[in-house]
Design a protein around this nucleic acid. Structure first.
Length: 1012
RNA sequence: GGGUGGUUAGCUCAGUUGGUUAGAGCGCCGUGUUUACACCGCGGAUGUCGGGGGUUCGAGCCCCUCACCACCCACCA
């Protein structure tokens, strides 16, 4: 483990006194504080003079618990983008915040309270439970924000939002009101997924399936109006016999010859003793499955519900909110009374019903059957489909279309979001995810937005039940139009009342429900709510009250979490505008909306992303982001998702403490490929007991390498002024310029170009690879080693190149590794790093004048030759201190010249002296040889002739094979005529070079073989 | 059942429109402590690119098919 952990900061180091190991713990928190100070908390100003804007909203983490590596990879990606654009000079905003995560958080808190205090939410009451959840939110919210900061996230911290805070609430109210006003919100009875334990509806995505070993029971339903030739029974198979008391039909396939003549007739439900029709339905019934007869229970099964809609069937609900049979669960059959009221639905009632059927001899068959049963993710109990009154947002097309905030008319909300992706306004990367997005939206299923919870935005709808002394139910039935008129009158009275109390017409909307003798009132402001809350008593006191208000009640439910999340880009930026034109928040919206990129996880592409697009267009008339990047999913070493329940989660802060934030970020970035699934072996650290992964060593080592290379460079600099771009360009243009200088600057240049392109294309793994290659291989392994002789003799040119390259490298790597680069930046000898922090310094740009393909090619050859000589030394066990004599035979004079130009590189790095380098060079008598394409290298005096002969003969065979293959290819007319000219020409050249090499090899072979 | 992605070195993964002899990191083998770094240097070995078929002058890459893995969507009375 790291021996250098210290709690106190070491005293400031001078450039020459940097520690031999980079110690992240010593610098990170201090640097973060300095960034905050230098940037006013990374605060983005709408008034920035910058030409371009770049903005990102964070996918707000749930306050259910701490962040894991999935959040960390997304945070890293966003911070890379944001830091890069900030350095490019763009006005840059990264909006941070947290999500209240309705059901998830409430369930966690309820569970915790129950475990500790044995109290449920009803014991506590609404206000107290909500207060407890707020406490939880403060604790975990702070923890999450702290985790993000430790990672170095450069969010606009002063703007940190929470989906339940006032700013967000205002947007929620506005959006809801607008939807309500436009008739896009409605209340309806629907089958919802009901959690009988938490007594709430849960979303589809909050359900997981478990395979249950159940029983498939075939039950005989007597045919009620039996005629000659009819069977006595229809046999119906079911896994849920307890729902049979709610059957309102049995269905057969309309073309099934066994049954189609029975369509329109009736069966009697056993136990219930009720007659129900036999219907034909080709969608519900698969004639090949089971008996081909299906019982239809619209109130307790989604498919049956849909069937019920098609055939206009009754819906009989059998269930109470807490999962028991209600008073509809009884009947008389065969002269006997059966009553299951009060029994637990899927357990006790099922058992009792099966027993009774058994006694009646109506069970035709019972066999074990495995099937999937939906369970609530929150309570871990089975889900019941449950008929319940819920609020919905209309997603389907509507007559006359809907008008978006930009004035455009579209057929419906879902269609608006589909269009945005299909016409390219919102671009999804990787592109393949567009399809799932469009397909999901194309179903245009209405969005159930009400949740029977206490933690969330309360639904701003009030129901007013009204009555009149002279208007009885009987009279209403005979004269519905009179009630309608009376309701309108009452609405007018309430409106007048609200107006008189300072609530303008713009802040509420009244609709009447004749069927229920109700007025339904949607409010837009808390002030309107306050007036309504007092309305009942006021009207009771009033003698002039025409209608009698029986009850005034705000809907007890809260909104689906995704409703407020869907407004996140708008609400955090201050939508709706407050009306004052100079309010700073309004300017944020116009400056930074639409945002540039949304980086998120794929599983919420539909639930969240699609709905943001929809609301963005509907509420504000513009898409919320131009690009969506779907990042990779991190799994453990066995390919399982990281989950608390599996105990395989890794806390980013643990990695930061063991390896450093840059190591975390670099490693995650290097794994961010388009493959989408990243396996990260997780091990438990024996000392700390915390989960970690050896993979993060790569990032730690890389940060340390950069640290040490910088330490080396800084400790050898005598110059105190960094060369400018033009200084460096004229330096490489000079005829006497060093080839290694030209080379490293060319490498730097192409690395900048490559990295910039990759960042813009979200190819983060490639960015990391490019950095690694440049810093570790090019700079450390080669350039610094090559330059050492010049460094030691205090050459000022090499110092200029070193300082220039170091500065550019630090800036280049900063978006990925902000801490270590900033730490080194502060030590620059020209003092620039102490004047202006790297975080606000410009990102390096590539300069065409620095590109030098010839130098790259020459150095590449020099590297190969150096390696070959080192290999010979190694394989012949020659002491490092012994200088080798080398003869190089080349295939051309040009190659020889190029090699000699790199003599000052090859010789010291291989501790060798080149005696001759020439196409006609004659190999020394006793020499070991090595082969580099186009070049034969001979080292005198270390020969092992047998080994040589063997090695050379292997190469001879390889060359013979390659030449034969190449010749065959060139002999193929199709190849010569169809392949691109460059490819054919390349092969010709290669072949020529291989033939030359073969010739030389064969001569050597004769030599070595003859000698043995 | 529908869809998407994957299967390349012992492990984790790259491989950018099909084009010369397929790459990296880790691990492994050998070696070295020369004042940037042992969280290091130097050198090396390692692959029938999941199986089969096809298109093409040419396939890790394109098409078909099979097998296995993962995820998303829909779910069976």
């Amino acid at each position: 483990m790291n021996q250098h952990n210290t709690t106190s900061h070491p005293k400031p180091e001078s450039a020459r006194e940097l520690s031999a190991q980079y110690n992240p713990q010593a610098v990170e928190q201090d640097i973060f504080a300095q960034w905050i100070k230098a940037t006013n908390g990374f605060h983005a100003s709408a008034k920035s003079p910058a030409k371009n804007s770049f903005s990102v909203v964070i996918p707000p983490p749930n306050v259910t618990g701490a962040l894991h590596l999935g959040h960390a990879i997304n945070g890293t990606i966003q911070d890379i983008l944001v830091r890069y654009h900030r350095m490019c000079g763009d006005a840059t905003l990264w909006m941070p915040g947290l999500d209240h995560a309705g059901i998830a958080t409430q369930a966690v808190v309820e569970r915790t309270i129950f475990e500790k205090e044995k109290l449920n939410r009803h014991d506590l009451g609404r206000d107290e439970l909500v207060r407890r959840i707020w406490e939880w939110k403060e604790k975990f919210g702070d923890r999450i924000l702290e985790q993000l900061k430790r990672m170095g996230s450069s969010c606009d911290w002063p703007r940190t939002r929470f989906t339940l805070d006032d700013v967000c609430a205002r947007a929620v109210r506005e959006a809801f009101f607008k939807l309500f006003h436009d008739g896009l919100i409605f209340r309806g009875l629907r089958l919802v997924n009901w959690d009988t334990h938490l007594q709430t509806a849960v979303a589809d995505d909050e359900i997981y399936y478990e395979t249950i070993k159940g029983q498939m029971t075939s039950i005989r339903y007597p045919i009620a109006d039996r005629r000659d030739g009819d069977p006595e029974f229809l046999v119906v198979a079911t896994t849920r016999p307890e729902t049979m008391l709610g059957d309102t039909a049995v269905a057969v396939h309309p073309e099934d010859p066994r049954y189609k003549h029975l369509i329109g007739r009736e069966v009697e439900i056993p136990l219930a003793g009720r007659n129900i029709p036999i219907i034909g339905d080709g969608l519900l019934v698969d004639p090949a499955f089971g008996t081909g007869v299906v019982k239809v229970t619209p109130a307790h099964d989604p498919n049956d519900y849909a069937t019920g809609q098609r055939h206009n069937l009754r819906q009989i609900n059998l269930l109470t909110a807490d999962g028991k049979v209600n008073d509809a669960g009884a009947g008389t059959f065969g002269g006997r009374r059966y009553d299951y009221t009060g029994l637990k639905f899927a357990t006790e009632a099922r058992r009792a019903i099966l027993e009774d059927l058994e006694k009646l001899g109506l069970i035709a068959e019972a066999k074990p059957h495995e099937h999937e049963v939906g369970h609530s993710d929150r309570s871990k109990t089975p889900i019941e489909p449950y008929l319940s009154e819920q609020w919905f947002v209309k997603m389907s097309d509507v007559d006359g279309g809907i008008t978006l905030a930009n004035g455009h008319n579209v057929s419906g909300l879902a269609q608006a979001a589909i269009d945005a992706v299909e016409n390219g306004g919102v671009k999804i990367t990787p592109d393949r995810y567009s399809r799932g997005y469009v397909e999901w939206l194309s179903k245009k299923r209405d969005w159930c937005i009400s949740r029977q919870l206490w933690w969330g935005h309360r639904i701003p709808v009030w129901t007013l039940c009204v009555s009149w002394n002279d208007l009885t139910i009987e009279r209403i039935k005979s004269d519905e139009s009179q009630l309608s008129g009376r309701l309108r009158e009452s609405a007018g009275a309430i409106r007048t009342y609200l107006n008189q109390h300072g609530i303008s017409d713009a802040d509420f909307n009244i609709q009447d429900s004749v069927a229920k003798m109700q007025l339904v009132l949607c409010t837009r402001t808390p002030a309107a709510d306050a007036r309504l809350a007092e309305l009942k008593t006021v009207l009771e006191r009033s003698e002039t009250s025409v209608p009698r208000i029986e009850s005034v009640m705000q809907d007890p439910d809260v909104l689906d979490t995704w409703f407020s999340s869907a407004l996140w880009p708008l609400s955090t930026m201050g939508w709706p505008a407050s009306g004052t034109s100079d309010a700073p928040e309004d300017q944020i919206l116009s400056r930074f909306y639409p945002t540039s990129v949304l980086s998120t996880a794929r599983e919420i592409l539909t639930l969240w992303v699609a709905r943001m697009v929809m609301f963005g267009l509907y509420c504000h008339g513009d898409i919320p982001f131009r690009q969506v990047y779907i990042h990779a999913v991190i799994q453990d070493g066995q390919g399982r998702p990281m989950k608390k329940s599996l105990g395989n989660g890794v806390d980013p802060v643990d990695i930061i403490e063991s390896h450093g934030a840059d190591a975390l970020r670099y490693t995650l970035a290097s794994m961010a490929t388009e493959t989408q699934d990243i396996r990260l072996p997780v091990v438990k650290d024996k000392v700390s007991g915390k989960n970690t992964s050896p993979r993060f060593d790569a990032g730690r080592n890389f940060a340390n390498k950069l640290w040490n290379a910088s330490r080396f460079i800084l400790s050898h600099l005598d110059i105190s002024t960094a060369p400018s771009d033009s200084d460096i360009q004229s330096l490489v243009a000079s005829p006497s310029a060093d080839i290694a200088d030209r080379w490293i600057l060319s490498r730097l240049n192409s690395t900048i170009t490559r990295a910039t392109g990759c960042i813009n294309q979200f190819r983060f793994a490639e960015v990391a690879a490019a950095f690694y290659q440049f810093v570790w291989n090019d700079l450390c392994d080669w350039y610094l080693e090559i330059a050492k002789p010049r460094i030691n003799r205090k050459d000022t040119v090499v110092q200029q190149v070193l300082l220039y390259v170091l500065r550019a490298t630090l800036a280049l790597l900063h978006p990925v590794m902000p801490y270590v680069t900033e730490a080194i930046w502060g030590k620059l000898p020209d003092g620039s790093g102490t004047v202006k922090m790297l975080v606000v310094s410009p990102f390096p740009t590539a300069h065409a004048a620095l590109d030098n393909p010839q130098a790259e090619k020459d150095i590449d050859l020099a590297q190969q030759i150096t390696r070959a000589i080192r290999d010979l030394r190694n394989s012949h066990n020659v002491d490092l201190k012994r200088k080798l004599d080398v003869v190089i035979q080349t295939e051309s004079a040009d190659t020889a010249a190029n090699i000699l130009a790199c003599r000052a590189i090859i010789e010291p790095l291989s501790n060798a002296g080149i005696l001759t380098c020439d196409p006609k060079a004659i190999p020394p008598a006793d020499s070991a040889s090595a082969l580099v394409p186009g070049v034969q290298i001979f080292v005198a005096g270390i020969v092992d002739k047998q080994a040589e002969a063997k090695k050379i003969s292997v190469r001879q065979q390889e060359l013979t094979r390659l030449i034969a293959a190449g010749k065959a290819k060139l002999a193929n007319e199709n190849f010569v005529s169809k392949a691109p000219h460059a490819v054919v020409e390349g092969l010709r050249q290669q072949l020529a070079s291989q033939e030359a090499e073969l010739q030389a090899v064969e001569i050597s072979l004769i030599q070595y073989s003859a000698a043995t």
